[in-house]
Design a protein around this nucleic acid. Sequence first.
RNA 1: GGCGCGCUGGUGUAGCGGCAGCAUCGCGCACUUUGAAUGCGCGGGUGCGGGUUCAACUCCCGCGCGCGCCGCCA
Length: 577
Amino acid sequence: MAADRPTDTADNTSSDAPRRLNFVQQIIEDDLRTGKWEGRVATRFPPEPNGYLHIGHAKSICLNFGLARQYNGTCNLRFDDTNPVKEEQEYIDSITADIRWLGFEGPVLFASDYFGQMYTWAVQLIQDGKAYVCDLSAEEVRAHRGTLTAPGTDSPFRNRSVAENLDLFERMRRGEFPDGSRTLRAKIDMASPNMNLRDPAMYRILHAHHPRTGDHWCIYPMYDWAHGLEDSIERITHSICTLEFENHRPLYDWFLDALGIYHPQQIEFARLALNYTVMSKRKLLELVKTKRVSGWDDPRMPTLSGLRRRGVTPESIRTFCADVGVAKFNSTIDVTRLENAVRDDLNKRAPRVMAVLNPLKVVITNYPEGQSEELDAVNNPEDASAGTRRVPFARELFIEAEDFMEDPPRKFFRLGPGREVRLRYAYFITCQEAVKDAAGNITELRCTYDPATRGGDAPDGRKVKGTLHWVSAAHAVDAEVRLYDRLFNVENPDKVEEGQDWKDHLNPESLRTIPAAKLEPNWREAANRASWTDEIARVQFERQGYFALDADTAKAGRPVFNRTVTLKDTWAKIAGK
RNA sequence: GGCGCGCUGGUGUAGCGGCAGCAUCGCGCACUUUGAAUGCGCGGGUGCGGGUUCAACUCCCGCGCGCGCCGCCA
């Protein structure tokens, strides 16, 4: 099941086997069969540029762009920029870049380009007696709206004449009234059991500078009014959004029908939720603003830019989204599934390199001083075409401090006094002595090597339980390594108890920095043997995990690596017990 | 209160009347110059009560429980 599984599609259409369609695909195929849209499939991804994209958006992006790809249709990237007070050019730029990084492209459009058309349509509704200008304040509107159980009451301005409404609306547009003083409302039904239909606002007055339209407008359309129009203008066929818009669908339909214009079908699906993180833009923004993380692209963030910097590949995000599927009910996905998709991809593609994070010096006492040699190491056991490289070996080495125990427990396969292990691609060594300082800390190991085991095999067939990674001390390159862990130490940070704050569950150990890890000297050439669509260098540090070269490398004057994800570590589990 | 959705193994889900599958997680075994990867095995059908049917996890009805939404945000 490994080799032939498509790893780069956003859908689950495997060529063989009966295809299992998700419910959206079913709707589309039914429509294709009945010719509902003349065989067209047109979707859109409509982010509001008020924050960075996160893994939850990736699901929607993969769905919308994936559907278009699958059915030979189109998918527009449409910025839903209808609220200038929250939106910024920075977000427009990051969203565009993130989508391209994820591997999708399509026309880039802006809702703000339709403001003129929307205005014309609003006038039409007024003329038809289906919209009116209301002078109630926000609080008064709330009071008139009624409650969950009680119907609302009509606004005293509900029955203004068409002429007066037209005049007032025009003056709203011209900027004659202050923010919040009036709204244009749809005349629907103040007694509707669906609160969304109790004369919802279509336009509010906002004297705000818009990133694209500047100061041309001082009235801005509300989502419910605008969204269907945007879809209609773009002749979208399937307008896919998340579950919370289900109650808005009657409104979506009402506006389009009242106007008598092209009418796409709105379909709702469950957004992605992941444990051990938060996904709301509000909370992510707060983490950024309060400096709990270094920015939107902090590698601990669930943002696409954070995941990218962390080293996660776009391919693995796409397979993850395909694996997760599309359903009509909310559920929380275990992050381990994301991590797994990442390991799966990286295992096949990442070149192996040896790096010692927590160095312990080893002296090979029977290896000649001043001598060194080069040993062959394979770059990727999963990919023969990756070839081999030469790794220098000498008398003084570093191994991982955790790979030695003075008094090893039964199941510990690594080095201990008198024990023999293999140094990967090098020799068998036996520990003769652990040298300690005055405080009793082990400062150095004195070992002997068996020259006959060069390359790592014993001619006499002798076996060894453990294989350690290592680096020649004289040849090692220092690197900064950033070890990341989950941002929160509880599964659901959104669920807070009385008197607690969601930020109380931030994991204090989500970042651990190692200033001077020891890398094998040819790490860069080794890493560059693989090519990545985003040109971020990624490697596996053998026995430890996958790491990505951070852009800070340039200013740090030494390589800086981010740990993307660890390797599975069954010893850690055993040791933890 | 309304609308919508769900209730299958530890978890997340698939099946659209007759075989319960996938992923993940856990455990075990094999193999192994990454305790990695890989391969194999083990771990389930009830939310409750009715009905339709030769046959229901799948269809229908009622109940229960859970979740989501109800801003001059999107």
